[in-house]
Each structure stands twice: as structure tokens, then as C-alpha cells.
Design a protein around this nucleic acid. Sequence first.
DNA 1: AATGAATGAGAGTTCATTCAT
DNA 2: AATGAATGAACTCTCATTCAT
Lengths: 226, 226, 226, 226
Amino acid sequence: MSEKSRHIPATVKNPGVLAQRRAELVDVATQLFLRNGFHKTSIREIARACSFNVASLYMYVTSKEDILFLVAQRIVDEKAASLGDIFSEGDDPVAAYILAFQRYCRIIDKYRQGVKLLYREMDVLPSDRQTTILESEIAVHELFREIIDHGIQDGRFRPVNSGLAAQNTVFLAHMWSLKHWSLKREMTFEEFLEAQTAFLMSTLLPKDLATGPNTRLNKIASTKRA
Amino acid sequence: MSEKSRHIPATVKNPGVLAQRRAELVDVATQLFLRNGFHKTSIREIARACSFNVASLYMYVTSKEDILFLVAQRIVDEKAASLGDIFSEGDDPVAAYILAFQRYCRIIDKYRQGVKLLYREMDVLPSDRQTTILESEIAVHELFREIIDHGIQDGRFRPVNSGLAAQNTVFLAHMWSLKHWSLKREMTFEEFLEAQTAFLMSTLLPKDLATGPNTRLNKIASTKRA
Amino acid sequence: MSEKSRHIPATVKNPGVLAQRRAELVDVATQLFLRNGFHKTSIREIARACSFNVASLYMYVTSKEDILFLVAQRIVDEKAASLGDIFSEGDDPVAAYILAFQRYCRIIDKYRQGVKLLYREMDVLPSDRQTTILESEIAVHELFREIIDHGIQDGRFRPVNSGLAAQNTVFLAHMWSLKHWSLKREMTFEEFLEAQTAFLMSTLLPKDLATGPNTRLNKIASTKRA
Amino acid sequence: MSEKSRHIPATVKNPGVLAQRRAELVDVATQLFLRNGFHKTSIREIARACSFNVASLYMYVTSKEDILFLVAQRIVDEKAASLGDIFSEGDDPVAAYILAFQRYCRIIDKYRQGVKLLYREMDVLPSDRQTTILESEIAVHELFREIIDHGIQDGRFRPVNSGLAAQNTVFLAHMWSLKHWSLKREMTFEEFLEAQTAFLMSTLLPKDLATGPNTRLNKIASTKRA
DNA sequence: AATGAATGAGAGTTCATTCAT
DNA sequence: AATGAATGAACTCTCATTCAT
């Protein structure tokens, strides 16, 4: 979890103040980055939008790049927090998979713009920082892979390449963010969710189940939904 | 095809010269944008890298943004050209789909970085320019959708939501570009191609075919490959 | 000695504390100024290097300039202290001169970098502060001048312009500091000392002594050396 | 002569324009550096003082440091040009030495502030640039050393350490610049010149000449003066 | 058609210093 | 007496763009 590379030095000492004002800073920066992108957002703009003096801002971060890292971190962390324990519950891998995917999709929907931001501006960060962020993404892959592997062992899933299947799962959820401009014209989020679930299940379930009506599957998920 | 919004004003009158030198400009700019991103590439850098004087460059283009548009256009156009007539041939929708997908994937592999660039920098363009670029993307969706619809009508494909299926098809090809940092550690392009083909086919083919060995499918594709 | 202009106001009342912590401050600042120069050393750097908080530092000093003044003063004072009573002892002006010069040279060697710092950064100080520092230098001139005048009166020295001779004496000692980059490649400090002593003596002693072997002169000095 | 390290890259191509405007820039910068020092002079100040836009200024230099280097170079070059051929003429090393010293002193007087600037700000430059500047200084040492060696071989000078003697010669000329604040209160430049000449001659000439009246020596110099 | 030179605006960052506690 | 946090002003440098020829 490379705790070290998550650290960003600050001049401010009081951890409470640091956390609180950084939160303020990151909030504002996130808004601006989402709206105008990283490069078109100036430090002065950010400072003006919070109640920070430009120099004060630099008590909380070392560089503009740091702000992007904090923003990325927050998105990733909130995503992780939202994911919570959806992977731990239950023994049925099919239900677990569906539940997890749908929950993950809802998180993507919630952080739709944040996800897009990550895809867009990640390369600005130095590679160790990128790695830190991407580790979180990989963690999600792994969780899905575990479920899929479970399912394969149980004979509930077909013996697919679980690594790619997991990545496809995650990527097809991200699609709601990256292709939103196109998808929103054709379907609602709920429709996307249902169709995409069916789509994925048809790649995992053995033939006889895969072709059945999806309603049952979705019902499982809906029942367990928070 | 909104021919109008494709137009970029220039001081240079001679269309031959315009086309030729723009091509040079776009070539160089593409390289630099791919390597360093749009914002970290300066006009001076571009001018230095081709045989242009900074001021001359502005005879072929109105702003730096225009260059990005031209670059985006070129990527999109080359992709389109590469696609060529892969959709027109044959009557077998299954073979057509597989062939088209695999060919599209190869194009994505070829323009891997260009595709990434598009995802990353598209938002810099004003929305009408974005639309122009995205129309080309939509065109690809449509082509896939047509094949799928064909297949559904023929009974060769399941009655899926062909719109989403088409977008998934395209998006899962793009995955090779966007997730290359992760995928390349686990598989070669050919492996990706094969697995992803199987993945998609299992969502389209009726149960009895979907679970069959994929070798046959790939053989079809290989046969028709250029 | 313009005691007034030596004073630097402070918020701290307790004179003991003031002196002690100022000493610490000046110590650290001297190191940093020597290493990086006055302008490239920031207040924060100084505060970080001692046990001071930036704001606390300002209780002992009114401005960054003050610190430079204190540093300059300390160098000058330590030089003065090292000089001590070398001028008072003995009646032989020749021996006294040689002893004083060589001792002064050793002090310059000891404070080599400090001397350079003074030459370099003195102009940053307001002119009254400069004067305060330079008075100390003038005092040294005067001491040398007295010896020389003595020698002239005794007939041991030629009737030179004692003012300039004194300044030359001091300046040629400073040379070890200012031209160290060049001199060190050609001679050791002891060689410099001996040669420079001979050089100066040849300008002061009447013809018959001046051309004699210098060993005798140096022996005198060596004998009385501390 | 490390011609390479003398070069400073520029965006401006026309060498005439480059030279002319750089001269303007260096002129102004010299004034400001002399008056306020390098660090207290801002780029904007310099730009304002010539008719340069800040960005234009950067077409002629790469950094503020470059300007200091150019200023230093100009001082050093003008000094060198002024020195001209004073060393080549004549066969009499005594006359040559006196002439050269006095001429050098006049140059120091002319560039009094420039010389001080060099002593003060040289350390700001990176060491290769420093070396470039100091080479010029060393060249002067060497010229004096040659004359002195000549004189020693001819038996006109005493067998002193010619290296140190040469450096002393140069350094005592610089004294007029570095100690001007003090010297000017006690003597005019001409008085300084005469006294310092006598001072140096007494270290070089054998006893019988050294103690003679200096008027003759000065007369030699005066005759040959430009 | 081409280009060398110019420029206003603004970028990110750091500074010496002071306030509030 | 001490300090954590704050700040206005200034810094060097770069940019996309345009003028004059």
C-alpha cells in the first residue's frame, strides 16, 4: 500500500487543521479541474475559490502537481470507501459478482466526472504517484478476479481468463463515465446497469443460464442493494 | 458530416501548398502531442520540429487549438481509412462481426497512442469541434450496430440491445489503448485479441454456439485477414 | 565607536536570554551566509537550522538585514579579540610590525570566509551600519600606522606614507582571503606568510636591511609568536 | 580561451541586432547591478530601463544569470582592450613594469565600480562561467609575471617570487577599487598611483635604486603614457 | 508566402514579515 | 516568551500570438 508515497509534505503542523483545510482545497480544486481541466486551472484561481492566499495554499502542498495528486487520491479513496465490504458478503459467487458490479457501477456514476478526470490527467503525475493511484484500481481488479475465480472453482462460472474478465468488468463500468456523452442519449443509468450486467453474465455463466432471462439476476442484486 | 465545422481557415490560398504543409505540421504535432501531451507542447517546439517559422505556422492555422483539431482529425481519418470496406464484404454477419472487430483492434493497436490522446485531450476543443471528431466514432458504432442487427435478424445473434453491444465492442477494443499499461503485463496483443473476441461472441451468440470452442471463430477471422 | 549604531532593537527584554539566543542565531546564520551567500539564504532556512521559530526569530531581530549586521559584527569582533594586545608589546617597531602582520594574517586565515563575506555583502547594509563595521577595520589600519610611524621616528623604517603603508599591510593580508582561489594553487599559507612579510619589509626597511636575508626577520616573528 | 563557454544562446538570429541590443541590455544592467547589486535588481527593472519587454529580453539571454555573465564579460573585455599592447613595447623591464602597472591602475580607476562588482557577485555564476571570467584575470597576472621574470633575468629586479609579486601588483591596483571608500579620504588617484608605484618598485629593485627618489621612475612612465 | 523580432498577459513559486493566540 | 498560520508583494520565466518587413 506504499504509505510513504501517499505522503505530501506540508508546512502546516497541526494535523487537524491540515486535514480540514486540505479537504477544502481539494474540494475546490476538484471542481475546477473537472470543469476546466488541470492545465487550464491556475493556482491563483484555486486560491481565489477557496479562501486561501496563494502563499497560504503552498503551506498545504508543495506544488500544483501535489494538488492533482490529492484530488486523484480523494477520488480513489472515496471510491474505495464506497466499495466497502461488498465483496466480503455471501458465499454465492454469482450473486456476489452481480452485486459487486452493480454497486461499483453506482459508484462510478456517483464519481462519473472524477473517473473521467483520472483517465485524463493521470499522466501529468510522476510515475511513482501514478503507481500509487493505480494500485487502488488494481485492487478492484483483484477483488473481481477473486470472485470470478471462486465462481469458476464452484463450477458456477465458465473457465474464462479471470484476469481479463475482471478488467473487462471494471472497464465496462468505467464506460458509463468515459462514454457518457454517447450513452446518455440512448439509455438511463438503470438501463445501462441492467444491460451491462446481462452482457457480463452471458460471458461468465455456462450456456444454459446465460441465455435465460436476466430479470432473475437483477432481482438478486436489487434485493441486496443498499 | 458537417463539412463546415471541419474547415479551418488559413491565410495561405494555394490549396496544394496548404494541404502539403499542413500535413507536415500535423505529423510533427502528433508526435509531440503523443510524447508530451497537448499542454506541455509549445507552439515554438512544434515550429522548431518542422520547417516552420512560428509566424508561418500561423498562416496555416488560427490557433494552437486548431492544431489539436487537425491532429485529432488525422487520427480519426486514418482510423477510418484503415477500416475501409471491412464492413461491406460478405453476407455472414458472424464472420463479418469477428473480422471487423479484429481488424478494428489491429487499427487501435496501430494507433494506440493516438486513441489515448483523443480520450485525453478531446475536451480542450470547443464542443462543435468535439462533435465533429466524435461523429467519426459514432460512425464506427453504427457500422457495428448494423452488423449486429443483421445478425439478430438472421437469428445468428441473440436479440441483445444492439446499440450498447456495438458500443461495448468499440470500447473493448479501445481498452487495448487505455489499459495498455496494465494489460501488457498479462498478455500479448494477439492473446488479447483472441480472448476479447471470445468474450464478445459469448454475449452475442446463442447458447449452443457461444460455449463451443473459439478456435473456429478465430479461424474465420484469420482466413479473411489482410 | 558609535555605540548607538551598534544597537539592534529586540522584543526580548531579558538581556541574558537575548545575548545567548542571538549568539545561537548568529552562529547558524554565519554558517549559512558563508555557504550560500546572504541573498540565497532565507529566513526560514535560518530558523530551521537553529531552534527558532520564524516568528520567534523576529523577537531578537528586526529584519533579515539585522542578522547580516550581527554576523558582520561578530566576525569583526572576533577578529578584534584575536588581535588582542599584539600591538602593545615591545618597543622594537620592526619586530612589532612583523609580529602584528603575521598574527593578523593568521587571523585572516582563520576567518578567511568571513572576511570574504564582509567584502561581498557589506553593501547590503545601510551606510551607517557599514560605517560601524568599517570603523573596526580602520582601527586596524591605525594600529599598523602607529607602529610604522614609530619605526619611522626611530629611523628603523623609511619615511614612507604611513597611512597607505598601513592599508597595504592590511590589504595584502586580506589577499589570502580574496585571492585564495588563485593563491592556494601556488603556495601554502606559511609560504604566503613568509613571502608577504619579506615583500612588506622591503618597502619599509632602509636599503641595507631590506636586501638582507629574510630569515632573520621571520625568526623575530617566530620567537614572539603565541 | 574556452571560446565555447563564452557563448550564450539567444533566440534572436541576426548577429548585428543581437550584438547591438545585447550591448544596450548589458549597459543598463551594469548600471543597475552597480547601483543596487545583482540580487536587488529585478528582471523587470532591467527590462524597464532599456526599452525591452520582459519577454523580449529573454530573446537575448537565457536567464538572469546570463546577464550577470555578460556584464562581467564586458567589464573584463573592456579592461583587456584597454590594456592593449602595453606589455609588448620596449626592452627595459623596469620601464615596462612601471608603465604597465600605472596603465593598469588607470584602467582600474576607469572601471572602478565594475571591478568591485566582479569581486562581489562572481560567486553567483556557475563555476565554469567563473572560470571563464577569472582566466582573463590570470592572463593579467601572467603578463606582469613575464615582465618581472624578464627583469630578474636581466638583473634589474631582485630574485623575488615572481608569481606572488605579479599577483600583488594586480591586487594593489584593485585596491583602488575595493578600498576606495577609505583611500579617497586620504589621497587622490594620482597620489595613490605614485605612492603605490614606489611601494612596488621598492620590492623589486635592488637596494641602491629602490631608495632613490621616485620622481625619476614616474617620469619614465609619464613620458610613455598614452 | 515567409520570417525575425516583439509583446501582454500570466504562469508557478517564494519571500520577508506579521498576526492571533 | 513563544509559535503556528497567514499574507501581500514580488520573483523569474514562458506562453500563444502578432507586427513589420
